[in-house]
């Protein structure tokens, strides 16, 4: 079986700086895949390359058997890849419910005239979006917050709301950029369970960037490690933990 998402020799140069060098990986459908590395290793740049925010200097991205290299984000979202952001990017003035409904807009098939004239088709689409959004809010444990403006939500809920919004686009693969950042240990545990449920119950493949080693090692089935834009290791958590280059990247080398 071929991979759901495959990156081949992805390279991203910003002027003289090579942020990501020849990044390759293949994620199977249904996997929990981790992407880790020290600060500035180029993890978020990889996400931006995969989701179309950046166009790679060289290399290709293949998603669900088609080449999506250099396609704009909306087309990639339409093909079934969704993401969250390291620095949360919610639609602050909209309510939590409306944020998730905005994610569901993608799968609607109504035109502007349906909207302007409030046709029956528009009413059905609104209902579909609303029901789906409520379902996802409940899934994320946010149903109580539906009516609150996104900007008024507490931090942890903002992170979860971003995930709910990404799920609303009905993705095959969801890319989570440091979802546990800034959470306390018990919140992190809850989040780990949630991520597992996203894969098991919603059947969405998960690609995860995370700094918290315990979380990543406990959750992910395979991990790729980046350092200074280069892939230094790839494999099962146990192998990664004992890999000499990974330890070196994180802890440094002893002198002498």
């Amino acid at each position: 079986m071929s991979a759901l998402l495959a990156a081949d020799q992805l390279t991203m140069r910003f002027g003289g700086l090579t942020a990501v060098k020849e990044f390759s990986c293949a994620i199977e459908s249904g996997e929990l895949f981790g992407l880790i590395g020290p600060n500035g290793a180029g993890k978020t740049t990889v996400f931006n390359l995969l989701t179309g925010v950046y166009r790679p200097s060289s290399g290709t991205v293949t998603f669900a058997q088609s080449d999506i290299t250099g396609q704009p984000p909306p087309s990639i979202a339409a093909r079934g890849m969704s993401r969250t952001f390291q620095n949360i990017r919610l639609f602050d003035e909209l309510s939590a419910l409306e944020n998730v409904m905005a994610g569901a807009h993608l799968r609607g098939n109504i035109n502007l005239f349906d909207a302007l004239l409030r046709t029956g088709r528009h009413a059905r689409e609104e209902k579909r979006q609303r029901d789906w959004a409520y379902k996802l809010l409940a899934f994320m444990g946010l149903e109580e917050r539906a009516g609150l403006a996104a900007k008024h939500l507490p931090y942890g809920d903002r992170r979860k709301l971003e995930i709910a919004r990404a799920l609303a686009t009905e993705p095959k693969l969801i890319c989570l950029d440091e979802p546990a950042a800034g959470m306390n240990p018990s919140e992190k545990q809850g989040l780990a369970q949630l991520i597992r449920r996203i894969r098991d119950q919603l059947h969405v493949t998960v690609l995860l960037i995370e700094h918290d080693m315990q979380l990543v090692m406990g959750l992910c089935e395979r991990i790729v490690v980046l350092d200074h834009g280069e892939t230094i290791a790839c494999g099962k958590p146990r192998d990664i933990q004992s890999d000499a280059r990974v330890i070196e990247a994180y802890l440094g080398v002893a002198d002498g």
């Binding site: 989701t51 179309g52 925010v53 704009p72 984000p73 909306p74 990639i76 979202a77 339409a78 969704s82 993401r83 952001f85 990017r89 919610l90 639609f91 602050d92 003035e93 909209l94 409306e98 409904m101 905005a102 994610g103 807009h105 993608l106 609607g108 109504i110 502007l112 349906d114 909207a115 302007l116 004239l117 409030r118 528009h122 689409e125 609104e126 979006q129 919004r165 990404a166 609303a168 686009t169």
Partner: peptide
């Protein structure tokens, strides 16, 4: 009608955060 519709919401998304709107599939 426009403002209360799914299109109105998409317009507000573009205003609030263009990058996020794009990655959610809003052109």
């Amino acid at each position: 009608n426009l403002q209360r519709s799914t299109f109105g919401r998409a317009l507000i998304c573009v205003r609030e955060n263009e990058l996020a709107a794009e990655t959610m599939g809003v052109r």
